[in-house]
Design a protein around this nucleic acid. Structure first.
Lengths: 107, 107
DNA sequence: ATCAGTACATTGTTATACATAGTACTACTA
DNA sequence: TAGTAGTACTATGTATAACAATGTACTGAT
């Protein structure tokens, strides 16, 4: 779906973290492709990479750079404990938001 | 719930519009109070007013200023047709986002 | 007269997503 | 072997949105 930009704000970080968690280990390019295939058509590489750098700065992920047999080296991301608890918190807030909006919509 | 700030981005506008629609007609102060009572504890007046001004600029609402028997004059907001279709679009996008995040969470 | 409650407005800051562009590596092919 | 497509990451600038903080102003009660 198009023009989700503003709605994505604040969500994207949790989404990317969850993708990393689910895949155990992954890298920027793969995350971008994954997100576009599942329907976030407008997400561009630049956006994902800025999120990843943010996650790194906040120490929510562990990083390992490894060579690829296809193209340049990949920077692999893995959740650490901070990342786990951040993600838990994120889903709690998300759940709350969904509940609130459901109520407001029915109002 | 606290610290929903970032998650609210892009959502608040739709929320405020829906509140206006549901109440048929309302004003900033009432909206702020309403939102804080239903659980958005951190929302402050300033935020709601900036949203309202945005809605006005984008021509999504009609405005009427009327005296109050209690305190200063109130600026009443009412959805117009643009507002209606914006709101419809908003709920569509929101629904899409909820679906996507549900999938991602289960992944 | 002062204060609390009601009501709106403004200004500056910060965070986030995006646009754009660039770098660099590999494999294929003309 | 030069060129191109695909893979992969980085950097810079911009726009938008929510918040913090502050100020104005009106009414009613003490």
């Amino acid at each position: 779906m198009k023009e989700m930009t503003e709605l994505l704000k604040g969500v994207l970080e949790g989404v990317v973290l969850q993708v990393i968690k689910s895949k155990k280990e992954t890298y920027g390019y793969e995350i971008t492709n994954y997100l576009t295939t599942i329907g976030f058509e407008d997400i561009v590489e630049g956006t994902v990479y800025t999120v990843l750098i943010r996650l790194e700065k906040r120490n929510l992920v562990e990083i390992e750079k490894r060579k690829s047999d296809l193209g340049p080296a990949r920077k692999f991301y893995r959740l650490n404990e901070n990342g786990e608890s951040y993600l838990q918190d994120f889903w709690k807030k998300w759940g709350f938001l969904v509940d609130q909006l459901t109520k407001i919509k029915k109002m």
